[in-house]
């Protein structure tokens, strides 16, 4: 079957798989099965980050994103963000459970000194302890709220990032999280709702993709390719450059050793691409919207 091939229109977003697949949590719906014991991808060297940042300037990168695993397990994460804010805006995707106040104090200083925004996206996947902890682990609801509180205390405005694997059809979901955050002292809540990616651990927990859930050449006619992550992003990992943060476990997602080698088009061979196609903006800070919504 012929696959749609998506060119990189421009490298707007450069991602760093900064803590590899290592996480202090083992969420049952994680699309790359991160855990304390998953070392498929390791921590990025500080120098690897610095080199990629330097390389990104000539490529005109607009924004930088940091993910894992849990980025703040990286022993030099604060330093990495301080460095990045000299190049451009930085967003870090965190579970919010391991912050130390001294890190946030330093980041507060770095954010104030930079022209660019430092965004924190904190994952929480249910608006009650029961719903969240069933996915993210016992006690995490309270720990995440504490992390949000730490960020607020240091003057940040975290974006709560929600993958409601058990509540996807709840039409009041957004408002429920707004209420939760307000009740916990967050006066201007920011929320990003994400669709469930049915790969990795989630494929074992819930349902995987149905056979028909694939992107075809015909489906791309009249479709805005800019909605697809691979149209404007690449990911730096300790094992090379990958096409997007979602497909790390797919061998064909590795595109090269350097950014320059990884600028080629990508064929949408994967079923997770179907979710990206449907919702768009999966990895950006704005919420995703179903195409027909």
């Amino acid at each position: 079957m012929q696959l749609p091939s998506i060119p990189l229109a421009h490298l707007d977003d450069l991602w760093f798989q900064v803590s590899g697949t290592v996480c202090n949590l083992a969420c049952t719906h994680c699309f790359i099965s991160c855990s304390p014991h998953n070392h498929s991808f390791g921590f990025l060297d500080f120098e690897t980050v610095r080199t990629a940042l330097e390389e990104s300037v000539a490529l005109g990168v607009k924004e930088y994103y940091f993910t894992g695993g849990e980025p703040f397990l990286h022993p030099r994460m604060t330093e990495i963000l301080e460095l990045t804010l000299r190049y451009g805006p930085a967003t870090v995707l965190t579970n919010g459970t391991v912050f130390k106040d001294q890190w946030l104090q330093r980041l507060r200083v770095a954010a104030d000194a930079s022209n660019y925004s430092l965004e924190f996206r904190v994952s929480m996947d249910g608006y009650t302890p029961e719903a969240n902890d069933a996915l993210r682990g016992h006690g995490t609801f309270e720990r995440i709220l504490r992390g949000v509180g730490q960020l607020l205390h240091h003057g940040f405005l975290p974006i709560l990032t929600v993958t409601p694997a058990n509540d996807e059809d709840d039409p009041q979901l957004f408002e429920r999280f707004v209420r939760l955050l307000r009740e916990n002292g967050y006066e201007r809540p920011r929320i990003k709702i994400l669709p469930t990616l049915r790969i990795g651990a989630e494929a074992k927990r819930g349902r995987g993709y149905d056979e028909h859930e694939r992107v075809t050449v015909e489906m791309m006619e009249g479709y805005d390719q800019a909605r697809l992550v691979c149209n404007h992003s690449r990911v730096v990992t300790d094992r090379g450059i990958y096409v997007c943060p979602i497909l790390l476990e797919a061998p064909d997602a590795r595109l090269g050793d350097t950014l320059k080698e990884a600028l080629a088009p990508f064929a949408l061979a994967h079923q997770a691409c179907h979710t990206c196609y449907q919702y768009g903006a999966l990895c950006a800070n704005a919420s995703s919207r179903h195409r027909d919504a």
């Binding site: 707007d12 300037v57 490529l59 005109g60 607009k62 805006p89 022209n115 660019y116 925004s117």
Partner: peptide, 8 residues
């Protein structure tokens, strides 16, 4: 202003 790098 805060999300547009000079490189971009």
């Amino acid at each position: 202003e805060s999300t547009s790098s000079s490189a971009f």
